[in-house]
Every structure is written in structure tokens, then in C-alpha cells.
Design a protein around this nucleic acid. Structure first.
Length: 423
DNA sequence: TCTGGGGTCCTAGGACCC
DNA sequence: TCTGGGGTCCTAGGACCC
């Protein structure tokens, strides 16, 4: 929502929401939209009337824009902190050990400077939470968002402040307490983060899933149990890579389904190569409807590759076999996906007895070139034949709906932001 | 009556996160 | 009519090994 606002001043101070893929659910809301009672994750069709009545501005998600804006924010943070861990598209942990200029009581000033600089550079508003553990930093961030008096920056480094403020944080707002544990804790009389920080380790182990609960409580007490996940560029190497989509319109035909799954495979393989991995396991699944009368369980097939691969062509050969096995005539499919697991660093695969190392090197080079072309000219401009529909056919029906998407202001020459002339 | 004591690997399921 | 798409970690249990 903040990315939309950054390029469209007319969205300031009015209710704005952003939709999930396929324009299905609401996944981001401005404060004004929250105040109208619109909930996170709510299906669009259930609130359509309310949105119209209240004049809420509605956007399809625009990941080209959000991803690029996220990178700008993360790049700045990486420049001002000794180490960073990019936790999600809109969150980042900074390790401040070794930060020379700023010491404990001043860390809030540091937080304010970072917050102000981000707003100036990217127009993205942020909240900063500081603490001796990740869990306390998250708690501080949550409180900074909830209590306007702090101006979006709060430190829980000081113990007496911590004791006081953790009492004001509902236990279900603690990082790692979801709906299940939240309900359980309330039933057991633990209602705030402060109360949770005072339970014994053995009690935490018993009630909150073993070692996970024990770590959570220790972190609340200020004893670090999770370090920064190390990686050079701040991104985490994934252990699994998936690409799954609900289709724009349901599919029944085998060729349509195969083309859709082939696209997901190509995308998953790109992500795999991007992080320098190769996969041993490939899962393909096809889902009929999830809702209504003709809802059926999804069918999946997992294949083991003889040698780890990140070669789209090799993966497609297996995917083709899997789809042929899973597909049933007459079933209406709403969603499909590809999952890659058993990842290892690429290029370390044992060559089979009859594999030709020179050929493998040429394949790798070919894939690098294809990735570079698609990076420059647009996703899947160069594609494998399995992905393609006959020449001249209409837009594939499986493609995601995004009827209210804003322009890719920062990543496409054709959609650059234009500044209205003064006067 | 009496029935060892270690391991590993994999999968499914449950909890959580954004 | 219409319901997203990614991820993580842990535990228990089964199959198998010596």
C-alpha cells in the first residue's frame, strides 16, 4: 500500500487496499482502510459493497513495483548497519553490534535517522523496533506501530521500560504466537507478553511445542536464541522453492494445464539458478476447486532426479510425465504448482558415467544466456516450447487476473512515472 | 520367568511467519 | 460468480541399519 502511495499523492489520507494474486483477497491496507473494519486476508467479494460505499481505492498487487521498492529500502539499510537479514519483502533485521557512533541510550536516535532517511529516499514509511533479541525487536516494532506517541521508533533495550511496555502487548502479538497458541495461552491465564516472559522454561516447553516455546520465552527475557541468518547479500538461501498459482479461469484441457505448469516450472527453475542451487526432488500438483460442491482433493506426484539439476529443460521432461499421470479428463482444475526440494549448491553434482562435462558446461551457459535475455527483455520472452500456445491463440486462460494494477513505475521503460507539468 | 541398544533417513503433520 | 502465494522449524513414527 505504501508503494502505491509513494507514486500517487491522491492516495494520501484515503482508504487504500491492495489485493492478492488473482485479485482474490485483501493483503495490504492503509490505516484508513483498517479503521473501516476491513480485515487482513479477507476475500474481495465479501467486502466489495463496503469498498464501493466507502470509496476505497483498490489495487491489484504489483510485485514488479513492490520488489524494486523493497530492494531500495534494503540497500539503504545494508549501507547503514553492520549486518542485515532481509526477513521478507517488507521487513529487515539489522545487527547493530559494532556500530561505533551509537551507544545504548542513543540507539533510538539512530532509529529515527534511519526512518527519516528511508522516507526521504524512498517515500516508504517505516517503524523501527530495537531490542537485545529478535523477538524483543519485533515486540518493540509492534508497540511502535500501536502507540503513536513513540513516532514509530521504540527501544526495549532498557529493562525497566521493557517490563512496563511488555504488559501492554497482548500475548497473541508476540512473534511466534499464532491463533492456536494465543487461544491456549489466554485459556491458561497468560494474556500479555509480560506474563509470558515470566513462565518457567519447562512450562513453556510443555505448552508451546517443545524447544520452540523455550526459545521464544528466553528471547522475551532478553536472552538471544536466534542470531542473524548469515548471507553475503542479506538474502536467505531457500531450502525449498515453489511456484504455484490459482488460474485466472478454471482449466480442464490437458494442453492448457501442461502449458501452465510448464510456466511455473520455468519460473521455479529461474529462482533456483538465481540462488545458485540445484534440486533433487520435484513435486507437481494439480488442484480442483477448493470451495463449493465440486471441491476435490488435489493430486500430487513427486519425482526424484537422478542427479540434482536446475536445467529447465530437464525439469520440464519430468513435469510432462507428471502432468500426464495426474491429469483426469472431466476434472475442473483451479490451481496447480511446482515445488523443488532437496536443494544443493549447483555445479557440485556427480557426473554420471556417461555424462559429458563439456555438454553440461554448454547447457549451463545456455541457461545463463536465456536468464540474461529474459532479465533484459521481460519474463519468458525466451521460452521452452512446452510453455507455448499455438501461434495466434488468445491470452492463456490460466494467467492471473490483475484488473487494477498500477504501472511498473520503476522497472519498465514503457511504464515510467510521469510528473504532471506544474501549473 | 525370560525378549538389546544403539543409530539414520524420510515423511507427514502441526505450529508458525510474511 | 468471486476465496493468494510464498516460506520456516520441530516432532513423531515408520522403515531400515548394525
Amino acid at each position: 500500500m505504501s508503494c502505491e502511495r509513494a507514486f500517487n499523492p491522491a492516495l494520501e489520507q484515503v482508504p487504500v487496499v491492495v489485493l492478492s494474486n488473482n485479485d482474490g483477497c485483501i493483503i495490504s491496507r492503509s490505516a484508513e482502510a483498517k479503521a473501516l473494519g476491513i480485515k487482513m486476508g479477507e476475500p474481495l467479494f465479501q467486502v466489495k459493497a463496503l469498498l464501493r460505499e466507502q470509496g476505497v481505492q483498490v489495487f491489484s498487487s504489483n510485485y514488479a513495483l513492490y520488489g524494486d521498492m523493497s530492494q531500495r529500502v534494503m540497500n539503504y539499510l545494508a549501507a547503514v548497519a553492520p549486518a542485515v537479514e532481509i526477513y521478507s519483502i517488507d521487513e529487515c533485521f539489522l545487527d547493530l553490534h559494532g556500530l561505533q557512533r551509537w551507544q545504548a541510550p542513543d540507539l533510538t536516535c539512530y532509529g529515527r535517522q534511519v526512518q527519516a532517511a528511508l522516507l526521504r529516499r524512498t517515500h516508504i514509511p517505516t517503524c523501527v523496533g530495537l531490542g537485545p533479541t529478535k523477538t524483543l525487536a519485533k515486540a518493540a516494532n509492534r508497540l511502535a506501530k500501536k502507540l503513536p506517541a513513540f513516532g514509530g521508533v521504540l527501544s526495549l533495550v532498557d529493562e525497566s521500560i521493557r517490563r512496563e511496555l511488555l504488559e501492554q502487548l497482548p500475548v497473541e502479538d508476540v512473534w511466534g504466537i499464532g491463533p492456536r497458541y494465543g487461544g491456549k495461552l489466554h485459556a491458561l491465564g497468560i494474556r500479555t507478553a509480560g506474563a509470558l516472559s515470566r513462565v518457567s522454561e519447562s512450562w513453556a516447553r510443555e505448552q508451546l511445542g517443545g524447544v520452540v516455546g523455550a526459545r521464544l520465552v528466553r528471547e522475551l527475557q532478553g536472552l538471544p536464541c536466534q542470531g542473524l541468518a548469515p548471507s553475503e547479500d542479506g538474502t536467505l538461501a531457500r531450502q525449498r522453492i515453489a511456484c504455484t498459482r490459482t488460474f485466472g479461469q478454471p482449466l480442464t484441457g490437458y494442453p492448457d494445464l501442461l502449458r501452465a505448469v510448464a510456466h511455473f516450472t520455468a519460473r521455479a527453475a529461474e529462482k533456483l539458478r538465481q540462488q545458485g542451487s540445484a534440486a533433487h526432488l520435484l513435486t507437481v500438483f494439480l488442484c480442483p476447486g477448493r470451495f463449493g460442491a465440486d471441491a476435490q482433493p488435489s493430486r500430487a506426484a513427486t519425482l526424484t532426479l537422478p542427479a540434482a539439476s536446475n536445467d529447465t529443460g530437464q525439469l520440464l521432461a519430468l513435469v510432462r510425465a507428471a502432468v500426464r499421470k495426474l491429469w483426469r479428463a472431466g476434472t475442473v482444475y483451479h490451481k496447480a504448482g511446482v515445488l523443488l526440494a532437496g536443494l544443493e549448491p549447483a555445479g557440485r553434482q556427480q557426473l554420471g558415467l556417461f555424462d559429458d562435462p563439456a555438454l553440461a558446461a554448454r547447457r549451463a551457459r545456455l541457461l545463463r544466456e536465456i536468464d540474461a535475455l529474459n532479465q533484459r527483455f521481460g519474463r519468458h520472452k525466451v521460452a521452452f516450447a512446452t510453455m507455448l500456445a499455438p501461434v495466434g491463440s488468445a491470452t492463456p486462460r490460466w494467467q492471473t487476473r490483475h484488473e487494477r494494477r498500477s504501472p511498473a513505475y520503476t522497472t519498465s521503460w514503457d511504464e515510467l512515472w510521469t510528473v504532471p507539468a506544474a501549473g
